[in-house]
Design a protein around this nucleic acid. Sequence first.
DNA 1: GTGAAAGCGCTAACAG
DNA 2: CTGTTAGCGCTTTCAC
Lengths: 352, 352
Amino acid sequence: MTLKDIAAMAGVSVATVSYVLNNKDHKVSAEVAARVRSIMRDVNYQPNTVAKSLRSSKSRIIGVLTEDLSVWQASYIIQGITHYAESSGYSVVISDLAMKAKIQSYYDDIYQYRELIDTAAAKLKSNQVGGIIFLGMHDRNINGLIQTDIPVVYAYCSTSQAEDVQVGYDNREISRKIVSMLLERFGEAVGIIDGPIQSAPARLRMAGAEEAYAQAGMLMNPRLRGSGNWEYESGSRACKGMLDSGYPLKAIYVLNDLMALGAIREIQKRGLRVPEDIQIVGFDDMSLSEYVNPSLTTVRVPLEEIGYEAAAALAELLENGETQKRLICLGCELIWRESCPPPEGLPIVIRS
Amino acid sequence: MTLKDIAAMAGVSVATVSYVLNNKDHKVSAEVAARVRSIMRDVNYQPNTVAKSLRSSKSRIIGVLTEDLSVWQASYIIQGITHYAESSGYSVVISDLAMKAKIQSYYDDIYQYRELIDTAAAKLKSNQVGGIIFLGMHDRNINGLIQTDIPVVYAYCSTSQAEDVQVGYDNREISRKIVSMLLERFGEAVGIIDGPIQSAPARLRMAGAEEAYAQAGMLMNPRLRGSGNWEYESGSRACKGMLDSGYPLKAIYVLNDLMALGAIREIQKRGLRVPEDIQIVGFDDMSLSEYVNPSLTTVRVPLEEIGYEAAAALAELLENGETQKRLICLGCELIWRESCPPPEGLPIVIRS
DNA sequence: GTGAAAGCGCTAACAG
DNA sequence: CTGTTAGCGCTTTCAC
């Protein structure tokens, strides 16, 4: 079923049908438009978007380039992208670099990495995507890694190029608020488990924490500051160090949920209880953090919204050639659960 | 950069360039082919796949239609699909029904459901996908719900239409083996927490369990058989019922990880220990099941492989017009962890 | 072996 | 307002 068929059935030319299809109302009389439209509906006509974009050389296709599709955040972000796409007549094609499996130890081999990306971006382009949303694994800084002449939006990752449009979330402010709350309740007895030193989000979260200390006129006790690599075991280790230091410890802000679980395990291993003896706040709100024992108080990152906003920004770029929003920063929210119950039991809202 | 440009640079016609692009070796002399190829390489030529599929009216695009992208299994399966696609020159476009948010309580309103699917499938078709992989939420039976004239492969869901090609995993056999192992070790003191009655996989898992009982010449104690709705709370409830029955209980096979966590919580609440007092085996190997306390012994479903095989089957359908494999059933494996340690400490392999 | 040319389904001048 | 027409980049038949 093509434009031509519709045209024949309606007794008009293909041009006319094309006009009504594209809502060029001023080019076609109301009655003809109505007739054509009704025929389209009757035969359930679906325009061939491929031919359309071939001819008009502009496409309503969003390319999504993921560093690794299997990181748990990816599907939520992509759902946000498809949500926007479906509500705005875009379609989305996916390309997965599968970095975790492909380069593993070469993780820092920037050249191999660049080649992978270039190939994938080229393939995407040959599929006539109008632009690309790059979905990072969020730690690495991906300055200038993507070489292409179509618009790119960076989601859940960071670039330091000012002209890049990127959408992320507010690591710093939510951390400041959480640590403020913790300091107010537990004073000196607050610990922190940091992420890896190269991680941009970890640095931002620590900056927020330090701001909270400064505002409280307090100093961070270096013995109550551990550091991990985002993995479970490293959370246990860091927690062990803090516990062994002998300083009073009533609460720990752990910069991700996995390390928080590791920390909880270490605490419980020593016969201490969470939250009665030590409270724990994590970061990420992974899907199971609600179901562990004790359930985890943690920061929910607006993943779906990140995807949605990234798609919206790309669409704007595609349609207007530019965006105002270069740096979209979305707010997070603390989700109160058992590992750190809200003060006095009333769940005050902590949100950035 | 188009075929025409390449042709001009090589001093040949577009037809010739097209021949070498498509490796029609017998239609073009070796030297011309070599010259053209080197030019293509020099200018980094990327054929326009859209124009290609428009002209040849066959596409190397796989449409993935997900019932809900945010269920945790989806991203692994899709990674399998993209893995196959990338290694075989296909691209993949995604459409998400987002059923969880869109129809919620209308979950069983088959008509609204069908309309959603039809719309999505039509959109996919208008994007010129060659075929569709339908990614189910796995419980529902989706007989004849997809109406389209392009090939469809059903992944992680079930159809009872014999002519449909579907790829799933072996619920029954792995369950039989697990329950056999449990009966051998704990005799009468084995409980089971079932899934919802309408669930096809739950029925298969129960069938495997019953087979194990039959082979052992034993009968399932109805008081040690609970039933849930896959959710955490229902696992606690079912476990409570079994514990309250007063029958000796040394191990429970819980048909998914979430309910298994609920069951563990109930057990611990009563001051009993897992695995010392009661052992637990789950099903799914969700990403966090490794990190809960105690870590969960559970069944790993070959999600990536399901995606890969589904894509391979679709590709075969697209390229040959048919497949031998109508019903691809992949094996699962029991992952030994703390909640049910391997007998005698040596991790025997239980795999279907 | 190679090339000219028709046309996939659609858009957008341009002419009427 | 409506129709004619020339392509978008590519494949493929048919003639040379």
